[in-house]
């Protein structure tokens, strides 16, 4: 039962609404316009897929060594990326090791996004004392140089990949919390938050539905940009011997292990470094393009 007659404006808007491409399609269109980002995405997907599928893709097992095959050059027959001092195939070790390396790049950022995001939203939305306590406490953590703090925590906890993940998580909580806090502060001022309050929504509902949904993009974009950094931090810790124990393959530790061959086989030595670099660079390029694409339209 319509009280008022519909206006022409309404039907016109209806017509355009139907033809507008979906948001996902818009983001993809804007993303794919950047050829470099597209290439980075392909590289990244290849690396991730190859690592995940290592048991099927890798030519050898990660720990299969043969004394006769020691110290092969990059490009040798049967060992495309050469072998190490125990004759283990570098490509196979890279692929198997990538699983741990990628995990220690992604997981800390994911955990830090949840914890830091939660803290930041609470601080930003509730403001006042809540904000002061949370943010100043995080500032203390933030005031340490990231790498030193990670080394310190890792060293205190002892070597092991799970401890690397813990220490990297601690390092990444404050910056993510800051992003979440400033974004939540912005959203809090929006009139639709006040409108939600006037409709009787409590703080819990407002944070869950309106605040989180509106700041998700910002946290997501920032967090993805941190995965590359985190990968480097984790590899660095591992390089220092705070990560896996031999013979488990992992990029950072492989780099450490191969460094003794630097005068024998310099090209093989840098292979794990190249993978760390490629993955980190691709991640940054992809996240950069993604952040531009997401800001296309709110």
């Amino acid at each position: 039962m319509a009280i008022n007659a519909p206006t022409a404006g309404g039907t016109a808007a209806l017509a355009t609404a139907g033809r507008e491409p979906s948001r996902a399609a818009q983001i993809w269109k804007s993303f794919s316009r950047r050829k470099v980002a597209l290439a980075a995405l392909v590289v990244l997907l290849l690396i991730v897929l190859a690592c995940l599928l290592a048991p099927w893709v890798a030519p050898y097992g990660p720990n299969d060594g043969a004394v006769t095959d020691r110290l092969k050059e990059v490009g040798s027959a049967g060992h495309v990326l050469g072998t190490d001092e125990q004759g283990r195939d570098i490509l196979s070790r890279i692929l198997y090791g990538g699983r741990l390396s990628l995990l220690s790049g992604v997981l800390p950022v994911l955990l830090a996004s949840v914890i830091g995001g939660g803290l930041g939203v609470a601080a930003g939305y509730f403001g006042g004392w809540t904000n002061t306590i949370i943010m100043r406490a995080l500032d203390i953590v933030f005031s340490f140089p990231a790498i030193l703090l990670a080394i310190g925590i890792s060293a205190a906890l002892g070597p092991g990949i799970s401890n690397i993940i813990i220490s990297a998580t601690v390092v990444f909580i404050p910056p993510i919390a800051r992003i979440a806090e400033s974004a939540a502060k912005e959203v809090r001022k929006e009139e639709f938050i006040e409108a939600a309050k006037t409709s009787g929504a409590g703080a819990g509902l407002i944070v869950r539905s309106h605040v989180l949904r509106n700041i998700f993009g910002k946290i997501f974009v920032f967090s993805t940009s941190q995965i590359g950094v985190c990968l480097m931090v984790a590899s660095g810790l591992s390089f220092l011997g705070l990560g896996v124990s031999p013979p488990t393959p992992e990029w950072g530790f492989m780099l450490n292990n191969l460094k003794q061959l630097i005068f024998v086989n310099p090209v093989v030595t840098i292979v794990p470094g190249i993978f760390i670099f490629l993955t980190s660079l691709s991640l940054n390029l992809v996240s950069d393009a993604l952040s531009d694409a997401l800001e296309l339209k709110r």
Binding site: E194, S199, G200, A201, N214, R298
Partner: peptide, 26 residues
């Protein structure tokens, strides 16, 4: 808590700018 039960239920409010009073993502 009691006020939350009244807002939007027994007393509702309309704002000047409908665009900003609606969450753009919903």
């Amino acid at each position: 808590k009691e006020m939350e039960g009244i807002r939007g239920n027994r007393i509702a409010m309309i704002f000047q700018d409908a665009l900003s009073a609606l969450d753009p993502l919903y």
